[in-house]
Amino acid sequence: MTVEVRLPTVLRPHAGGATTVSAEGTTIGEVIESLVGRYPGMSGQVLTPEGSLHRFVNVYVNDDDVRYLDQLDTKVADGDTVSILPAVAGG
């Protein structure tokens, strides 16, 4: 499966300034693995040393936060859009 990954401003320098890149995988975990394989600078930013999502990173599949789906096991389909965003406050 190939998905489009939208990067937040802070991660763009690791991908040569790109706002979106493509990545492969059938789950979010595989997509992130493919992403950090290609752009190693992202690894410490997106994942913890234990391999879980960094607490200030939210990952969405087509606008749904994967923490409330199946986390890193959340399935993706061809053509899905994955967005990575920093956690921010409102109010």
Binding site: L11, Q45, V46, A87, V88
Partner: peptide, 12 residues
């Protein structure tokens, strides 16, 4: 929010 220097500036 472009002002974040790194994801460690995130907030919950």
């Amino acid at each position: 929010v472009d002002g974040l220097r790194s994801l460690d500036d995130g907030y919950i």
